[in-house]
């Protein structure tokens, strides 16, 4: 019997990341074609056999056409399922609708749960994702979910680019406190927290800093930067408390809307994001933007999942380039 092997498929959302992961794994991307018909329905064609193979489908969420990307992923999963794949793993570095994870108002949709159900209905056997907005989303699934962390890469970036002893880690909101304290502990640094009151979505209001940042390099740590309202306000708050410099390290640089303008006008000296979300021309438009490549982590997670090895090693170590 032929050995079953890794088949890496990708949607249209982030082909570059898929290419990097494939190169890292030393395999070629499977031949697929996905496009929109003129009536805007999505069509997926798989150009090689996936029968009895270990299929990994990488689909991130590019800002803009989230729903198109989602349907493309679902159809692709379903196509592989009906084409007799042995196992289908959805690799979703940036989980869509992760912020709609609770019923915070009457009749508010728990869209993250819906997405989880849809993925399973489509035929997904395993999910690999990264820095979920709320790790409880794992509980929405009845299939294994590997929530990877960008933390090891973040730690490495800090060690390589900043004078560690001068830093203080700041969480821009209470929800991210755990993520920030974890980094502070690993680097043996001080920690501060910003308390914010949110008025409307995508908008931020009053902020209060808890902790001391005076004369330090403040590192703002968060899981995602969308319109960057929070980050910019937080940076101002930190600078108002006499920090020497403020740097933001964010896993998912969604940077939608006028995020780039916000960043360019802000007092942040550097904004470090990973490449879980396609950045396009944003790097040229924002000279403060730095990118950490997390494709080695994803590739290693895929390799380990395929070979049945433990993935938890990746929670503390970043594969070297």
């Amino acid at each position: 019997m032929a050995m079953n092997s890794i088949k890496l498929l990708t949607g249209n959302s982030h082909p570059q990341l898929a290419k990097q992961v494939a190169d890292r794994l030393g395999i070629e991307l499977a031949k697929t074609m996905s496009l929109n018909y003129s009536n805007q329905e999505t069509s997926v064609t798989v150009g090689e056999s996936v029968r009895d193979e270990d299929v990994f489908i990488l689909q991130s969420t590019a800002p803009g056409d989230i729903n198109d990307g989602l349907m493309e992923l679902l159809i692709m999963i379903n196509a592989c399922k009906t084409a007799s794949a042995r196992r289908i793993t959805a690799v979703i570095p940036n989980f869509p609708y992760a912020r709609q994870d609770k019923k915070d108002k009457s009749r508010a949709p728990i869209s993250a749960k819906l997405i989880a159900n849809m993925l399973q209905t489509a035929g997904c056997n395993h999910v690999i994702t990264m820095d979920l907005h709320a790790s409880q989303i794992q509980g929405f699934f009845n299939v294994p979910v590997d929530n990877l962390y960008a933390e090891p890469s973040t730690l490495r970036w800090i060690r390589e680019n900043l004078n560690v002893s001068d830093c203080v880690v700041v969480s821009p909101d209470a929800g991210g406190a755990k993520r920030a304290t974890s980094i502070a502990d690993r680097l043996d640094l001080g920690f501060a927290l910003i308390h914010k009151e949110r008025a409307r979505p995508n908008e931020v209001s009053r902020m209060v800093l808890v902790g001391d940042v005076e004369g330090k390099i403040a590192i703002l740590v968060d899981d995602m930067a969308d319109t960057c309202g929070t980050l910019v306000k937080a940076a101002e708050t930190v600078m108002a408390h006499k920090a020497r410099e403020v740097v933001a390290i964010v896993t998912h640089g969604i940077l939608s809307g006028n995020a780039i303008d916000n960043l360019n006008r802000s007092c942040l000296s550097k904004v470090v994001v990973t490449n879980t979300v396609p950045l396009g021309d944003k790097i040229e438009r924002c000279p403060r933007l730095r990118v950490m490549d997390i494709s080695p982590t994803l590739a290693e997670a895929i390799r380990r999942t395929h070979n049945g090895e433990s993935v938890s090693f990746l929670f503390t170590h970043a594969p070297t380039d």
């Binding site: 074609m33 064609t45 150009g47 090689e48 196509a79 009906t82």
Partner: peptide
């Protein structure tokens, strides 16, 4: 359209 199925394999079109 840039797409060529692997030799010896006909393509699998997703039926949604």
């Amino acid at each position: 359209n840039f797409f060529q199925a692997k030799p010896g394999y006909k393509q699998w079109v997703a039926q949604a």
